[in-house]
Design a protein around this nucleic acid. Sequence first.
DNA 1: TCTCAGGGGCGAT
DNA 2: ATCGCCCCTGAG
Length: 283
Amino acid sequence: MNLLYLPNYNLHWTLLGGQSFGWDFNPSTKEYRGFTQHSAIRIKPGPKPDTIFWQTYPEKDNEDFIKRYLRVDFPYERMLGTISKDQHVKAAIQQYPNLRVLQQDFEETLLSFVLSANNNIKAIRKSIRLMNEILGTTVDADGTKVRLFPSTEIIANTSLDTLRETKIGFRAKYLKSVAQALLKNNIDSKIHILSENDARIALTSLHGVGDKIADCVLIYSLGFDNVTPLDVWGKRILERFYNQNPKTKYGELRNWVDEYFEGFAGWAGQFLFEYVRGLNLQS
DNA sequence: TCTCAGGGGCGAT
DNA sequence: ATCGCCCCTGAG
């Protein structure tokens, strides 16, 4: 495995929190195992503090992927200084020190969060793993088989009945529709050069993608650090901590947090989300 | 066994 | 702009 220096980085809260559904932790080996559409990933503690061992499969030693995914070059201290503006976010940072925001693959992030609509995190994780079993390919990770997240093409070409076997209910038609649009319009090749607003328009034009899911993709995949998804928890945070009216239009609430946290609302939102929700770390 | 909410979005009104 | 509905799971 490969060694990486990774200071000020809490892998546990970052990988097993609400921003990614593709990681599992083995308490006996202290190892994290993840899957994406293209890779299986193993991460475990390194020989010294602030270090990790990692490996990718089937393409081994994919350092570019790891560094981008974990955002190792992100200016973490500067971000913390910027968002530490009040007692609430300071308490959240103290509760979850070294929590990070990942940069995940675009199509997989979009498809995953389409499944999040009116769903709970444990159920989403379960459905995705069912989907991996039924539609995903298998990769060998040093002797253990890992199922990958299904390709966009496979999802697009799978019947709704089969998709529903993964217990996603009414989201099946959205999942398939989005997968088909990704293929047909080759969105992945264009989305990365768009501005925040243009990317949001492109995303919300997809059937099954509204403001909230679009914002999840903007922060968790496209790197718009000023965007935070205003779900039921986000609105509770704004209501309870920041005296905002939760019935305010989504776009106005978004503008408010964007300005308040000066470009890092996505990170502030992540701290506050985990803080108010509390992590449910058992499977 | 039952209820209710869950990291929403769509379509009808 | 509001509102019922969607399919199923997890938690109490």
